[in-house]
Simulated scan of single mutants.
Amino acid sequence: MSDLYFGTDLFSEFDRLQQQMASLFGGFPFSIRSGRSGAFPQVNIGSTDDSIEIVAFAPGADPASLDVSIDKGLPTISGERGSAQPEAGDDTRTDAQERFVGAFRRVIELPQHADPDKVTARYTNGCLTVSIGKRETSKPRAITVQ
C-alpha cells in the first residue's frame, strides 16, 4: 500500500495549480512561440523555396488604411479597423465586445536570409498577404556530383 494519501482528487489539484499559475503569469507567454493574448492582427508565417509568406488576418480593415513598411529588416504592418456596428443611440448599451476596433501595429522579426528589397503585399478577403523574397545565396540549389 502506498504511503502517500491525497484527501481530494489528484487531477483536480493539478487543475487548480495550473489555474493559479496561469493567473500568476497572466498575460505572459509560456513559450517563446506563444503570441500575445489579444494581439491584432493575428498572423501566420511560413516559407517557400523562394519567399517568406506573412498572412495577417484583418477582416473589416479598409485596404487603404493598411500600411506595410520595412525598417532595419523588420516588417511592420499597421492600420486601423473601424466598427462594424452602426452608431449606437443613447438607449443602446454594449454588454460585450470581442471584436478589436482601432489602430493597430505589428512588427515581425525576419530570418537573416530574407531580402527586404523584394516585398509585395496584397489584401484579399480580409487577409493581408506579405511576400518577402529570400536572398539568392539562401535558396536551395542542386550540386552536380562528378
Rank of each mutant, 00 (worst) to 15 (best):
Y123C: 05
P75V: 04
E13P: 05
S2A: 10
P140F: 06
R81L: 11
G7S: 13
Q112L: 06
T137E: 15
E109S: 12
S2N: 11
S37H: 06
T76S: 14
I143S: 05
D95Y: 02
V68K: 05
F14G: 12
D50L: 09
V119N: 07
Q18E: 13
T137C: 06
L110A: 02
F28Q: 11
A103T: 07
S78P: 06
I108C: 00
L74P: 00
T120R: 12
R16A: 13
P41M: 05
F14E: 09
A96F: 03
P63E: 08
L17K: 11
A88V: 01
S2M: 06
L24S: 11
E87M: 02
L17M: 09
G27L: 04
G27S: 09
T124D: 15
P59Q: 02
R122A: 14
E136K: 14
A84D: 03
H113G: 08
L128D: 11
A22W: 00
Q85G: 04
Q97P: 01
G89H: 01
A56F: 02
L17G: 11
P140E: 05
R105H: 04
A88I: 00
R36G: 15
S65F: 00
T124W: 01
S65E: 12
G60P: 12
C127T: 13
R122W: 01
D9E: 11
D67E: 10
C127Q: 15
I32E: 13
K118N: 08
D67Q: 14
F14W: 13
T92Q: 05
I52W: 08
S65A: 15
T76Q: 09
S23N: 15
V145D: 11
E13L: 08
G26H: 12
D91S: 11
E136A: 14
S2D: 10
L24C: 08
Q112G: 08
L4R: 12
T144R: 10
L10M: 11
F40H: 05
D71W: 03
K72V: 09
G79Q: 05
D91H: 06
P116Q: 02
R106H: 01
P29F: 05
P59F: 02
D62Y: 01
L74D: 08
Q97T: 02
F100G: 02
D67V: 12
F57K: 10
D115T: 04
S34R: 06
R93T: 00
D62N: 15
T120Y: 05
Q146Y: 05
I77H: 06
A58C: 14
S47K: 08
G102V: 03
T8E: 14
E98I: 03
R141Y: 07
G79D: 07
T144C: 05
F14C: 08
T129H: 07
T8M: 08
N125T: 07
G35F: 06
